Each structure stands twice: as structure tokens, then as C-alpha cells.
Computed example of a mutant assay.
Amino acid sequence: MPFKTVWEENGVYQAFEGIPTQLERKKADNEVLQSPQFDTIKYWIVDSTDITEYNINKSQTIDAAAFNIGASKTNKNIYKLFITKNPKIIKNITIYSNLFEETKSPWVVKTFNNLKDARDFIYNNI
């Protein structure tokens, strides 16, 4: 499996590796969104540090954003934090983040270069 999900006290951490597909990305989202814990989490970390090749396109990113924007209506208090240095992934995160801003979704979407910075952000904001 190219991703793992770890439930934490106030949120969830997902790490991807290898070459994730769009289907696997959706599966990872569903694992979080369909969990009873989703309603109370305060953060969702998506760590893409170990992705070796990235083939998710703009259309698929828009699909993911729309799906998550819908979910933001049930839990409005999530920091969605992405970890990556990969320019292709950063480009898609920018598309994703812009859609959240355009639709006035309550989630805060941020990108970090490493897990420590993301965890520091969580520590200082929740």
C-alpha cells in the first residue's frame, strides 16, 4: 500500500510513498472522511516526502479539492497540512488551496518542507 494512516490524539497523519495513483489518493481521503473520528480532528497531515513519482493531474486535484470542500461543511476546524519539496506536488497543492479560498472553505491549507515544521505549526495553533 503506497500510504499509511495514523490516527493521533487531535488529528490524523497520512504518509505516501512510491507512485500513488488517483484511486489510492481517493482511498486515503475516504479512510479519513468516513471515520467517526473525522468529526473531531483538528489537523490532517499529508506527508508526500517519500513519493518517488507523482502523476496526479490538475483535473484530479480539482476533484480532490471539491470532495474535501464538501467535507469541510461537517468539520470546519481542520488544518490540512501538506509536506513536500516536490515542485509538481506543490503546484497541485496551490490549485487545491486556491479552490478552498475561492469557495471560502473554513479549512486552513498550508505546505511545509518537513514534518517538524508542520508539527510545530500544529503545536502553536491548536
Rank of each mutant, 00 (worst) to 15 (best):
L23W: 00
K26L: 00
K27I: 00
D29H: 02
V32A: 04
V32T: 06
L33R: 03
Q34P: 01
T40F: 09
K42C: 09
K42P: 07
W44A: 03
W44S: 07
W44M: 09
D47C: 11
S48N: 14
S48H: 15
T49P: 01
T49W: 01
T52I: 12
E53M: 09
E53S: 14
Y54T: 12
Y54I: 09
Q60P: 03
Q60N: 02
Q60E: 14
T61D: 02
T61Y: 01
I62Q: 11
D63P: 01
A65R: 03
A66Q: 10
A66W: 05
F67D: 03
S72Y: 04
S72D: 11
K73S: 13
K73H: 12
T74S: 13
N75H: 07
N75C: 06
N77W: 06
N77F: 11
I78N: 11
Y79C: 12
K80Y: 10
L81V: 15
L81N: 12
F82W: 15
I83S: 03
T84E: 08
T84F: 07
K85Q: 08
N86G: 07
P87H: 07
K88M: 10
I90M: 09
I90A: 11
K91R: 12
N92K: 13
N92Y: 02
I93P: 02
I93E: 07
I93V: 15
T94Y: 05
I95C: 09
S97Y: 01
S97M: 08
S97G: 01
N98K: 15
N98Y: 08
F100G: 06
F100P: 05
E102I: 12
K104M: 13
P106K: 11
P106V: 10
W107H: 11
V108I: 09
T111S: 12
